[in-house]
Design a protein around this nucleic acid. Structure first.
Lengths: 203, 203
DNA sequence: ACATTTGTTAACCAAATGGTTAAACTATAT
DNA sequence: ATATAGTTTAACCATTTGGTTAACAAATGT
């Protein structure tokens, strides 16, 4: 069948483009390099994706659609607040190991192109904080946690989990450890971070 | 005097280069754009800084030399642990308002060029964690804080303070607020973050 | 006054880069 | 078998980009 071949190349391109874009960013990526990695002619890139910009947008959306469900684990999961924090923290490390450049890529390109957010917001599955807000105020009313704004708590959870990966080269240097030791630190964070957060808010 | 004119242009270039590099990164920056911003001929850039790479390195080192003292406020300040956390958190927001693109720039380029760390490490004033480690284990021994690895605590402090700026576009979208409201959230973090951390570790 | 060094510019260059074209190849349908 | 539609490539093109050159201007020393 024709379809198979087409879908293969199209996917090969996307896979190659992901790698290059996520490592080098929009500005640093080269169409030729993507073509080489996908083992095809450069013209084929344009055949399937018209322009660098469109190829980039395909990669970006695909990347975000992987990240979004992760964030939804904090925002829209049904489980109990503490359990949710524990699960997210543990899952997130595994997620980043699978996609090491992804979170940094999304955040970086969003910084260079803040209007990109609009394009994401309109898509379905864009995480919403509303449910989490209710959950936090419920927990406060029930005397389970100390008063805290849901937004602040959310930012804290995300920061503690994402930054150690984004800031890895800097943190490795500051903490003065090699990659192996740093990985152990990250591994420990799977449980440490959740307890750190819960310790802070529980009554 | 000649010196004055020279130093002016050289500084003008550095200022212009900072702005462009910090906003667009090494790959996205254009020598012509830097020249335009500095209101000089492109050839002058090369007269003073030979190549894009060298100009970039000058900007990068200069940026890091601004960031380093901030980090040293956590690591090598003499004050009491809790006080130190409070002061750093409060100061850091003001610092980033002055240099909005700086932390992101440093972290980003470090990610794309991890071997760059070596160049920084050798320079004087490179922050060291040793003193902080002692301070944390002292506080633990004195029963002031719960047991925690200094490295983990340090990563937590840095993450909670830096990430809200680096992830601003993403967090703004997730928390679903406009720039004005987000700034209020950041303003509140000046005190919120320190209390969040201290709450978590104090006995 | 004038030679010399330093600063600055316009014009230029070669390489890189995103993108196009026209032709060739492959598979599918009739 | 052959026309047709989709896929892939080599060669090409225009523009951008980092960098250079040679000449000019301004300051400095003697």
């Amino acid at each position: 069948m024709d379809k198979i071949k087409t879908e293969n190349t199209e996917t090969e391109i996307l896979i190659a483009a992901k790698e290059i874009f996520q490592q080098k960013g929009m500005a640093g990526a080269r169409m030729q390099e993507i073509a080489d990695k996908a083992k095809i002619n450069k013209a084929l890139l344009h055949y399937y994706y018209r322009s660098k910009q469109l190829l980039f947008e395909a990669v970006f959306k695909s990347a975000f659609s992987l990240l979004a469900p992760q964030l939804n684990k904090v925002l829209n999961d049904d489980s109990d607040l503490f359990e949710k924090i524990r699960k997210f923290t543990e899952n997130y490390v595994s997620f980043v190991i699978k996609h090491p450049y992804l979170p940094n890529f999304v955040i970086q390109e969003l910084n260079k192109n803040p209007e990109f957010v609009q394009k994401l917001r309109s898509e379905k599955n864009f995480p919403s904080i509303e449910k989490f807000k209710l959950q936090v105020s419920d927990a406060i009313n029930q005397g389970i946690i100390k008063p805290i704004e849901a937004e602040q708590l959310f930012i804290n959870i995300i920061s503690l989990n994402i930054f150690p990966f984004i800031g890895e080269p800097l943190l490795m240097a500051l903490v003065n450890v090699d990659k192996e030791s740093y990985n152990k630190i990250l591994e420990n964070r799977k449980t440490e971070v959740a307890e750190f957060i819960i310790n802070s808010i529980k009554i």
